[in-house]
Computed example of a mutant assay.
Amino acid sequence: MSPLRQHIFFPLCLITSILSGLVASQSQTQLVGCETLGCSSTGCTLGNATNAFLGATSFNASLPTSTSSSANQVELTWTVGALAQSPPQTSGSSSSTKDTLFTKNFYLGYPPTLNLTTDSTGGCALFFEGIARSIPLNGSEYGSMTCQSALGSQCVNDLLTQAEGLINTKSNTVCADLQSQMQPSPPSSCLGVAMVTWGSVVVKDLTNSQPIPQTSCHPSVAGAGYDVALVETQTVRSEDVSSDPAPFFYSLTPVLSVFYSDTQTNSAKAYLSCLKVIDAAAGSVTTTTQTSGALDLSMGRASTMQLLSLMLAAILLRVLRWV
Results as ranks from 00 to 15, higher is better:
residue 215 T to S: 15
residue 193 V to K: 02
residue 199 G to V: 01
residue 224 A to Y: 02
residue 165 G to E: 08
residue 148 Q to H: 10
residue 161 T to C: 01
residue 234 Q to E: 15
residue 127 F to R: 04
residue 191 L to E: 15
residue 133 R to M: 11
residue 172 N to T: 15
residue 103 T to G: 02
residue 240 D to P: 04
residue 239 E to M: 11
residue 124 C to R: 01
residue 113 T to Q: 12
residue 232 E to L: 07
residue 161 T to V: 06
residue 138 N to P: 08
residue 200 S to V: 13
residue 160 L to H: 06
residue 201 V to F: 03
residue 222 A to T: 13
residue 224 A to T: 11
residue 186 P to T: 02
residue 223 G to P: 08
residue 162 Q to C: 00
residue 155 C to T: 01
residue 197 T to M: 07
residue 136 P to M: 09
residue 224 A to V: 08
residue 214 Q to D: 11
residue 160 L to F: 05
residue 139 G to D: 13
residue 220 S to G: 09
residue 187 P to N: 06
residue 157 N to Y: 03
residue 190 C to E: 01
residue 190 C to L: 07
residue 187 P to I: 06
residue 106 F to G: 05
residue 134 S to P: 10
residue 217 C to Q: 09
residue 148 Q to C: 05
residue 166 L to V: 10
residue 220 S to Y: 03
residue 210 Q to C: 08
residue 108 L to G: 03
residue 169 T to S: 09
residue 153 S to V: 09
residue 132 A to E: 06
residue 169 T to R: 11
residue 192 G to N: 04
residue 152 G to D: 07
residue 104 K to Q: 15
residue 131 I to F: 03
residue 126 L to W: 00
residue 138 N to M: 08
residue 239 E to I: 15
residue 110 Y to P: 10
residue 139 G to E: 10
residue 163 A to K: 08
residue 192 G to Q: 01
residue 100 T to Q: 11
residue 205 D to F: 00
residue 175 C to N: 05
residue 240 D to C: 09
residue 229 A to P: 12
residue 180 S to F: 03
residue 142 Y to N: 15
residue 112 P to T: 10
residue 169 T to M: 07
residue 176 A to Y: 03
residue 153 S to A: 11
residue 181 Q to V: 10
residue 179 Q to Y: 00
residue 231 V to S: 08
residue 150 A to V: 03
residue 205 D to S: 12
residue 123 G to T: 04
residue 220 S to E: 13
residue 138 N to I: 01
residue 157 N to H: 03
residue 188 S to P: 07
residue 205 D to T: 09
residue 133 R to I: 03
residue 133 R to G: 11
residue 131 I to N: 07
residue 217 C to R: 09
residue 166 L to Q: 10
residue 131 I to Q: 09
residue 142 Y to R: 13
residue 119 D to L: 12
residue 177 D to C: 00
residue 194 A to F: 08
residue 109 G to A: 00
residue 209 S to E: 13
residue 103 T to F: 07
residue 137 L to G: 14
